[in-house]
């Protein structure tokens, strides 16, 4: 117990980094995902082609590789990121691609009649999107988004590769120093707590959206 309280501060500080990556990636890549998803269903071919290539790159290569590329590769062509910014940049690019695919599916599930119905009521495209399309899409995609959210918490551990001190790294350091598995058990417990909180929040959200069908 003494040992646990000794290493806990460093683990908690690592959790801070993990949560900050998690939080900002989610806040930025969900709206971006909606925008890119909308871009995918337009009839403007150059745009859909560009997005297709982007999504293919992001989903077709490991996130770990993308992190390495952003932090160690981009400086070669003169683009230098701080460690944290590099991590956030790579995560946002990567997760936006996944969210975009999910939102595209959701958007395509909305019947054309809903748009036409809004049109004859003279709602603008933006009003239609905001009041009618997006709420329905959110309900459809919520389970898939939930999956990605849980993945994101765990994926954030990949930032160790560019030397950021996240939760897993804090545990790793303590384990190597003290030659014991206890830090890793604690790390697992903290990850489980984080994903449990997410699961509860997602369940609540799904329940909220179950008021209508």
């Amino acid at each position: 117990m003494n040992y646990v309280s000794q290493i806990l501060p460093s683990l908690i500080s690592g959790t801070g980094t993990t949560l900050s990556i998690f939080f900002w990636t989610l806040i930025i890549s969900v709206p971006l995902g909606i925008l890119v998803g909308l871009g995918m269903i337009t009839n403007f071919k150059p745009l859909t082609w560009l997005i297709d290539v982007y999504v293919w790159l992001m989903r077709g290569t490991p996130l770990l590789l993308q992190l390495i590329f952003v932090f160690y590769g981009l400086p070669i062509i003169g683009i230098v990121f701080q460690r944290y910014d590099a991590a956030l940049f790579a995560f946002i690019l990567n997760y936006t691609a996944y969210f975009a695919e999910i939102f595209r599916g959701g958007l395509q599930a909305i019947p054309v009649g809903q748009y036409e119905s809004a049109r004859v009521l003279r709602l603008t495209n933006w009003q239609t999107l905001r009041k009618i399309v997006i709420p329905q899409v959110v309900k459809i995609v919520l389970p898939s988004i939930g999956n990605e959210v849980i993945n994101l918490i765990k994926d954030s551990s990949l930032v160790y590769v560019i030397g950021l001190g996240d939760l897993l790294r804090a545990g790793n350091v303590a384990m190597a120093r003290d030659v014991t598995l206890v830090p890793m058990v604690l790390v697992a417990v903290i990850y489980l707590l984080l994903t449990a909180v997410c699961t509860v929040v997602l369940k609540r959200l799904e329940k909220h959206y179950s008021a209508w069908r």
Binding site: G113, V120, R122, Q127, K139
Partner: peptide, 29 residues
Amino acid sequence: TVMGVVFQDFQLFPNLTVLQNVTLAPTMV
């Protein structure tokens, strides 16, 4: 508004209540 349309399959907005379905356009438009 010139034309009101009642579609074959009605196309009510499932995410809005009956009252919200009716008042959405009058308030926004």
